[in-house]
Each structure stands twice: as structure tokens, then as C-alpha cells.
Design a protein around this nucleic acid. Structure first.
Lengths: 229, 229
DNA sequence: AAGTGGTCTAGACCACGTC
DNA sequence: ACGTGGTCTAGACCACTTT
């Protein structure tokens, strides 16, 4: 990491912060100072400090200067992999079964997230397998207003999620993670016992301002989602 | 969002990608082309496209040009808030109780993550409350090799986590999310029924290459961790 | 060898927040 | 009013990857 690039300077300043050269919350030198110290232009220092701000190491305010973040807020890049990748990366064979596929009026909880009001939407239930053993159970509502093509789509080997991701880019989404207790039906599908604790993910995605799909995924017991901070 | 700033151009190009102007995987115009089209310098376009690359919309290669990402990889910034903030943001009063604090030899699972071998470490059990109702139960091992000050630290009103975060900056960490079933003891502490499904977070943090602390948090039933993609 | 992105510079002006 | 960060520009050179 050469020291006069914006990446190098970013790393250098981060190291100095971690080493405790400045107190938490304390003002660090301004862009001009660093520029002189590192023998580069202010523009380069600016890039480095902006990156440190994005990554949560410092806080910047015009006129207020740049401060070390009081509580170094831990934030993580969480990559949510496709189930297929998740399974295949662990060396197992992926397969999925569509158990239910129909058009119906969504229940209130799903309708609220889809924002479709009284309209009908596509409903799917999918069971995902790893090496022919149940891995996760998915229920999903898809707005036919946003994705009319879905009505006639042949999924083939693709999961609905894969089909959507290849067909409809989305602009934003929301994820909620929680724990749920397996009911009788889901316990049967996942081949586990009733009252098992299931790691659960809800996800809703939008294309611009139109909700596209909302889904819930129950993983088999023992699943953990791991990631670095 | 004015159109000639790097932010504006970033938004404009993202909108064009989302609108489907280019196929997935397709080459989009080069920096010079965009610069001419938007009437700005190449530097500005470069910033915009670099940001789009970071956010996962495009892939860039020297000489290879810039392409729309084939599968728009969903990645999220997950902010893991301090429990205190989490509770107080919802308008409730935060309090925590240290139930156990002693020095002991960690069990194998914790020793592996702490990498302390046979050495003793500090062990804590903490119960976190929101409006005097149990909110989460924490067990934590702290390496006394990495944080000798902890042996004599007065926590007072602070949780161990807050004390650590103010005293020892960390450079990296690992988080694992899962679901667990409440055993008898934890069910009692959290004032819930046995076999309830608990959202669970394991976290280990390092200062440079020295493990600092490893902890497990069981949230009361019904808790969800939400974040945007 | 050539073309694309990656980066630096020096100077300039602007926007925001504090004083 | 002033000082800080935010951004733009024009030109330059470099680095990587493909042809």
C-alpha cells in the first residue's frame, strides 16, 4: 500500500486512529494539514477522509472539522447469497421444488408490504434442498402489477428468486431477521420436530416505488448466517 | 439532485441501468462518453462510476470497460447497534444487570475463538432490560491477555460491551446469527417459556491479531433485526 | 500496442455551520 | 464573517488487460 495514494493515506490515518493517536470524539487535523504532512494534494486527502467517513471511522462537518467517531459504530457488509450459491458453496447439490403456485388475494400482512391493496398477486411455496435434504422453506408473494410477465413465466430449474433477480432489477429492499417456532406443517416439510427454533428471513424489494415481491424464508434448525464486521 | 455533480450523475446512470437501457452484463459507455454527454469532466464521471461499482451495480476492468453486474448482488449495510441505543431509540428505558463476573478457564468453544489456549479469561453474564422487562441475555468471555485493564475495571452503569468499545478499539470482528431454543435457565432469566425460539447473535472481535472478546446474545422472543438492502 | 479505468495535481468556487 | 469540508476542472501520467 504505497503511502501517497488516497488508499494508502486512508490506511495510514485509520492505523493512527486505531493506535489511539486521537481520543474518541477528538478533532483530527484538517485536510490541508494532512496534505502537507503526506506531501500530496488536498484532493487526495479529501478522498481518503471521505472513505473513512463512509466506513464509519470518522465524522465530518463543514467548519466543524473531522472527528474520530465517538463509538466506533460496528457496521458490516452483509451479503445475502442466493440459496443456490449458499448450498453449492458448501459442496452440496442444490434443488428446489415448487409446492404451491397460484394467484390469490394476499393476506393483510403481505398486502401491506406489497402495497397492492385488494388486488390479486401470485403466491408461491418453494422447498429448497441441499443434497436432497430440506434446507429452507420459502413463501412468497409477487405483485402482478409490477411483474406481469410472471403470470406466464416458465421457471424450469430456476427458483422464483433467481427468475426475479434475472428479470427484474430492484432498486431497494428491506430485510428482517428473526427466530420463529416451527409449526406442524413447516416442521413436516423441513423434516424436523415441532417447536424447533428456525432462523427466519423476511425480505421485501421494490423497483423504484413499486413493491415487487415479499418473501419469508425458514431455514432448517442449526443454520447460521455468518459475516465479518 | 442536480445533474452535474458526481452524485447526480451516479443517480442518473443508476436509473438508466434500472430502466433496462443496457442488458445485464452488457458494456455501458466509457468515462469519456459520459463526460461528454453530461457536459462534465471525466474525473466526475469516474467518481460516479466508482461509486456504482462499490454499490454493486456495475463491474469495471481496465481496458475491459464497465459492465452492468450480471446478477445485481444484494448486499446490505448491517448496523449492529449497541443494546442501549436499540432500547432507547424505541423510547424505552435501558438498564443492565451483571449477574455473574468471575475469572475462569473458558470452555473449549469459547477458548477456540479467543485463541487463549489454557489461559484464564474473564467471564460475564449480563441481563439487559427495556423498561424493566428482560430484553436480552448476554454471556461473554474477555481475554485478559488482550485487555488486562478489565480485571480492575469498574463498570458502573456501563455494560461490558460499552466499556470495551470505549476502551479498546477493535479492528475486525465476526458475527454469526442464528436461532436457538431457550433452555430452562435462559427461559427463566428472560421471563419466557421453555422452548421459545430466540434470535441469537454471536460476536467475536480482534484488536489487530489478538482476540479481545467473544459473546453470545439471546434476545427475547419476537425480536427482529431489520435493515435496508 | 492500444484502449480503458485509476489516480494525482493545482487551483478554484461553493455550501454549510459555527462564531 | 470565516473556516472547514464538498466538489469541479483540465490536463497529465500510470497500470492493467485485452488484442
Amino acid at each position: 500500500m504505497n503511502a501517497r495514494t488516497h488508499r494508502g493515506i486512508r490506511a495510514a490515518i485509520r492505523a493512527r486512529i486505531v493506535a489511539g493517536e486521537w481520543q474518541l470524539g477528538e478533532l483530527i487535523p484538517g485536510e490541508a494539514d494532512f496534505a502537507q504532512e503526506y506531501g500530496c494534494s488536498r484532493t487526495t486527502v479529501n478522498r481518503a477522509l471521505q472513505a473513512l467517513a463512509e466506513e464509519g471511522m470518522v465524522e465530518r462537518k463543514r467548519k466543524g472539522g473531522t472527528r474520530v467517531r465517538p463509538l466506533p459504530l460496528p457496521q458490516a457488509q452483509l451479503r445475502i447469497p442466493l440459496l443456490r450459491e449458499q448450498v453449492e458453496e458448501s459442496g452440496r447439490a442444490y434443488r428446489c421444488d415448487t409446492i404451491v403456485r397460484r394467484v390469490a388475494r394476499p393476506p393483510q400482512s403481505a398486502a401491506e408490504r406489497l402495497g397492492t391493496g385488494e388486488t390479486e398477486a401470485a403466491y408461491l411455496e418453494t422447498l429448497h434442498f441441499a443434497d436432497e435434504r430440506p434446507f429452507a422453506f420459502e413463501t412468497r408473494w409477487i405483485s402482478l402489477a409490477a411483474v406481469p410477465q410472471f403470470a406466464e413465466a416458465e421457471l424450469g430449474e430456476l427458483s422464483a428468486n433467481e427468475w426475479l433477480v434475472r428479470t427484474v432489477p430492484f432498486t431497494r429492499g428491506e430485510v428482517a431477521l428473526s427466530a420463529a417456532t416451527a409449526g406442524e406443517r413447516i416442521a413436516g416439510l423441513l423434516d424436523t420436530q415441532q417447536d424447533a427454533a428456525l432462523f427466519t428471513m423476511d425480505r421485501t424489494t421494490w423497483l423504484e416505488d413499486r413493491p415487487v415481491t415479499t418473501m419469508r424464508l425458514h431455514y432448517t434448525p442449526g443454520y447460521t448466517l455468518e459475516f465479518p464486521i
